[in-house]
Every structure is written in C-alpha cells, then in structure tokens.
Design a binder for these strands. Structure first.
Lengths: 157, 157
DNA sequence: ATGCATAATGTATAATAATACAAAAGGAGG
DNA sequence: CCTCCTTTTGTATTATTATACATTATGCAT
C-alpha cells in the first residue's frame, strides 16, 4: 500500500544517508516493500524529497522545506484514504486504518496539531488518539467528520 | 570565469523555472558562457542547488536551505579569489575584482553582513562599498585583511 | 457479481545528471 | 622562460532518474 511505503521511505531517509533510488529500493525490499525504481521515483516526487549534499560531499535524499500547503494537503489525503472507521471510549478515540497504515495516519494526525489531542499511539492497522478530556471528544470527532466530508478544504479560502 | 558563471546561474534560476541542466546550458550560452553540461553539474553541486517541485508540478532548480557554514565558506572563497585590490576614499571603499565578478563579490560581502557596511553597488569588475562613517573605514579594511590572510578561519573555533 | 472508472504499479526506455579520466589553463618559484 | 603543482574544464561514458505506455488492482454503482 502506497502510504505505508511512503511512510517507510520517510523513515529510511531520516535514518540512513540514501544516495540513490536504487539504494532506497534495496532498503525497502528489506522491509518487504517489493517495488520498482519507477514507483520510488514517483513517491519521491509526491513526497517532495530533494537530493541535497550531505556533509561528506555526497548526495543524499532529504525532505524539502518548500512546503506549507502541499504537506497538509498530503496529510488530509492520507487521512481520507487510509482511515476506515473510528469510535470513542472515554477520552480515547480508537481509529482503524488500512493495514500497515496506522503509523502514517497517526503521524498525519500529529502533524495537524488538532486541539485537545494530546497524543497518539499507532499499531499496524489501528491507532489510539488521546484527547485531553472526555468532554472534548465530540469536538475532535466533528473535526474528523469535517475532514472526511472535505468541509475543511473550504477553510483555505 | 567560474564565479561569474555561478553568479549568473543563481540569477537565472531565480528568474526562470529551469527544469534541466540542458535548459540552463542554453540560457548560459545566451549570456556568452560557453560551457558543457558537466561543468554545470559541478556548479550545481557546489552551489548546493536542489531540484524542487514547482507549483505547476514540474521539477525546477532552486537554492537549497541546508546551508549555514558551507555558504559562508563559499563566500569567503569568492572573496579571496576574485578581489584583486581595494582602496578607500572618505567613507567609501573601491574594490577591484576580476572582470565579471563584481556582482558575485559584492553579494558575497552583502551576505557576510559586516558591521558598518551600509551597502554595495557593483559593476563588472569593481564594486563600491559604502561604510557608515569615514572613521569606521579602518575597521572594515582590517576585516578585509583578516579574510584574505585567512585569519577569520580560526574564528570558527 | 459485472462493468466502468480511477488509481497504482510495472516495463521498457528516453531523458537527465554525475563522474573517471584526460587535457588545458593558470599561477608560484626558480 | 621553464617546471611543477593546482584548478578548471571538456570528453566520453556510466549511472541515475523520469516517464510513456501497458497492465493490474481497487472501488463503486448497478
């Protein structure tokens, strides 16, 4: 699945100095992502990764800084496309995602910095979202609904 | 000459959306810089340019932001290698450079943000450096000497 | 389920970029 | 001027990346 792979890519480039897409290809294989260089090229374009010069004078991939709107776009997209269901219990919200996408989705949430959300813990296809108090859970759920129904898109105006 | 060409490259990428080194090659030709793709590749590495995604979804070259030390390194180098002489008159310093390098050298100075330096105006092989007052000119000249004798390098410690 | 539309990926290749090596272009010191 | 050393550039090639086109998956409405 695309998003969990891209999430792994982000993880890999922050861990290793990755000089080429082929190198990335091999590392992805080790994590059981069987893809081709072409797909990686497209992922890199979508993630807006850039080839920078590492201190050692060699090229390496890194996240670009050119992004304010685009990134949040991406996260909204991840949110909409990977979350399959959610329900609340006390001050927690249990969110189900496509398998392998728990982390990616949770990180998307984190990066949105939704108010009242204290933190997240992610598993493979589920993540737990901790709300500051039970009484604020409805507010958070409403934001979820807004995102899914794209109502948030209009806030860009 | 290398520095004036690189300066032109910076100018070009800030003016046009340049997608490939070949495109850059052609634009440089129009400005009478006759070089090959190989040289441009090296310039790009040295300038730490990166290929970003332009709003239109195509790739374009841009200046990278990864730089704090490296850039100032580069400017010091430009300074040392392009300035041929200088002398002061009242609160001005007239600096002679290799031909075509006036702008590059002046920009290097600007980016150093030397105190008492109010601004610069550059020609092809000369630039004028305006000091806030005549009495501060010696201080600026001393900094110049420090740079040229590499004494500044030790300040990094 | 079936058919249609859309998105994701692979295949093969063209386009683009990096570099090993060689050649030229500058100096600095004698 | 010559010799040695260093820097810059070109040439030719390899390595790397992007993409056109074909194929396979995925979802959605019937």
């Amino acid at each position: 699945m695309r998003y969990s792979r891209q999430n792994k890519i982000l993880e890999l480039i922050s861990t290793y100095d990755i000089e080429t897409q082929d190198m990335l290809l091999k590392l992805l294989k080790e994590s059981d992502f069987e893809v081709t260089q072409a797909t990686i090229s497209r992922d890199i374009k979508e993630l807006q990764l850039i080839k920078t010069l590492s201190p050692s004078g060699r090229y390496k991939y890194a996240v670009g800084n050119y992004s304010d709107k685009p990134v949040s776009e991406r996260f909204l997209k991840i949110f909409r496309e990977t979350i399959t269901s959610y329900e609340s219990a006390e001050n927690l919200i249990v969110v189900k995602t496509l398998s392998g996408c728990g982390n990616a989705a949770a990180e998307a949430i984190d990066s949105m910095a939704i108010s009242h959300v204290v933190g997240t813990i992610a598993g493979d296809n589920t993540f737990l979202l901790i709300v500051d108090s039970k009484s604020n859970v409805p507010k958070v759920l409403e934001i979820f609904n807004d995102i899914i129904t794209m109502r948030l898109r209009n806030n860009d105006r």
